[in-house]
């Protein structure tokens, strides 16, 4: 187990190193001039070559690429993750301020996805080809198909025009005012959670259908166990492994999806910060946020792998 863990951690480090190089290079080869955002259209148009040289040097963009990369690694090491090109605040400050909101949205969506997806999957599996199964399958396809940002926008508009309601405009952390905080995260959490829930419903349905055909389930029923016990104690635990795997993968979708969904709901989380940074070409912010997302994704997948051994005694890592 220990060897396996070390190997996974090493692989994770290599993966993150690859991600860091990719995002670093991509941000520098993509067309677009960050000085347009810094100086504005008129200022940019009036900038002389000498001005450009000076500003690029101030931003650290005139140094050779390997030097810039090493500086970035040093900033990561210091825990500050570098400074925004523009306003001078550190990326670590941005993450500390906006990160909790995005994390809450991710956790909430995960909870919603399990709360919705699992019962629907169980119902479908135990009443296959029934009307509830057909409805559940249709709904799951629908929620997979609907783009989260579009659904988000509809919810925002419906809340406004029907109830004159708009969520708080500034970040309120959970520990500051739980009620206002909930108003900020609940919309994106549900929208992202429903899309994930649809995947989980489909996955749990197909896994359960496979498991309930197994001998041990028939044996459980033959013993006279109630159907609920058969499901909860015997069928479900054995069908859960793929569902957990897909939850780990779906977290990646949540991270990616949150960029558009936060924008639609006007939630000032990390996703929105990413959108602004891309538009402004705030290279340092973009590369740090991408790396952060990669770290979370890799970490979750390692945890998912490790959880197999805990959930299924037959699995042992050596």
């Amino acid at each position: 187990m220990q060897k396996y863990l070390i190997r996974r951690v090493l692989f994770a480090v290599v993966t993150l190193f690859g991600v860091s190089i990719s995002i670093f290079v991509i941000m520098r080869v993509l067309p677009g001039d960050p000085l347009v955002a810094i100086l504005g259209v008129e200022g940019h148009a009036r900038m002389t070559p000498a001005d450009r040289e000076r500003i690029m040097a101030d931003l650290g963009l005139s140094a050779p690429l390997p030097v810039q990369y090493v500086r970035w690694l040093r900033d990561i090491g210091s825990g500050q993750l570098g400074k925004s090109f523009f306003r001078g605040d550190t990326v670590a400050e941005q993450i500390m301020h906006r990160g909790p909101i995005s994390a809450e949205i991710a956790i909430l969506s995960l909870i919603v996805s399990w709360l919705v997806g699992l019962p629907v999957g169980i119902l479908s599996a135990f009443r296959p080809n029934s009307i509830p199964d057909a409805v559940a399958r249709a709904l799951s396809v629908l929620f997979i198909a609907i783009p989260g940002f579009w659904l988000g926008m509809l919810i925002v508009l419906a809340s406004l025009f029907w109830f004159g309601y708009k969520t708080p405009m500034v970040i309120v952390q959970l520990w500051q005012n739980p009620w206002e905080n909930l108003q900020i995260v609940i919309g994106p959490g549900i929208v992202l959670g429903l899309a994930q829930g649809a995947y989980i419903a489909r996955m749990s349905r197909s896994c359960l259908l496979e498991v309930i055909g197994e001998d041990f389930v028939r044996t459980a029923r033959a013993k006279g166990l109630k159907e609920g016990l058969v499901v909860m104690r015997h069928a479900l635990p054995n069908a859960l492994l793929p569902v957990i795997t897909i939850s780990g993968v779906l977290l990646g979708f949540v991270l990616g999806g949150s960029v558009a969904v936060e924008q639609a709901f006007g939630v000032p989380g990390l996703g929105r910060a990413m959108v602004s940074a891309v538009i402004e070409r705030d290279i340092i912010v973009v590369q740090n946020l991408v790396l952060l997302y990669a770290v979370i994704f890799v970490l979750v997948n390692v945890l998912v792998d490790l959880s197999y051994a805990w959930l299924d005694p037959r699995i042992r890592y050596s």
Binding site: P31, G32, D33, V36, A37, V41, E42, A45, R281
Partner: peptide, 24 residues
């Protein structure tokens, strides 16, 4: 169609026949 930061680079470099924007 390009992002604003690209538009100004391209416009300044003359890489267009027609180019739409706004100025203040």
């Amino acid at each position: 169609t390009v992002q604003t930061s690209v538009w100004f680079d391209e416009a300044a470099a003359g890489n267009f026949d027609l180019a739409i924007s706004a100025i203040v």
